[in-house]
Amino acid sequence: MRTIDLAVTPLRELNAELHRQSEGTNEAEWEVLNPRGLHAVAVGVDAPIKVAVRGPVGYYGGGMNKKATITIHGSAGPGVAENMMSGSVVVKGDASQYAGATGRGGLLVIEGNAASRCGISMKGIDIVVRGNIGHMSAFMAQSGHLVVLGDAGDALGDSIYEAKLFVRGSVKSLGADCIEKEMRPEHHDQLAVLLDKAGIKDVKTSEFKRYGSARKLYNFNIDNADAY
């Protein structure tokens, strides 16, 4: 295992080293010490390696990840795992605003709470949050899944496209064009797979409600022309 201590090694060196890794690398396990809230820790990794970050990170931790398994043993600042392509990012603590924003693939697990705008404009990423999420989460979410074991804040799924949202607790309010939908057998199956991937075994899929798009905003309604 390679250990890089950010108290002595500059952040850019860490990221450059991680970027040198590719498929089949011998350096499969990495440990990062003393992140102390630094921005852009372990961003843009493009190799099937494991990275354990020991402590809280600042903006964009694990951003643009492809293939790597990144675990943050602490909390994460704004934009954790933003634009992830594949692989996984696990946050052991809380995440700040816009966690997993615009993510195209992979799995983001937040074991604490996520703040506002979680999964904003998500495009295929799967996000599982053990705690609560803040307001405006899944805003304009296009595809992928957002699973929340706790409660959701105001305006969940505003202007949502085809992402699927599963919430176990309460939803303070739904955003424009987001509605509760029936949990059919295939949704239970889908949710079970996601919970399993996130390592969550203590909840049942029957405890969740599903939310998604009413598809009323997809096309312009001519009756609204006067409003413009």
Binding site: R36, G37, L38, P56, G58, S75, G77
Partner: peptide, 8 residues
């Protein structure tokens, strides 16, 4: 404003 400010 960020955790960095609290880290020390």
């Amino acid at each position: 404003s960020e955790y960095r400010a609290l880290a020390g």
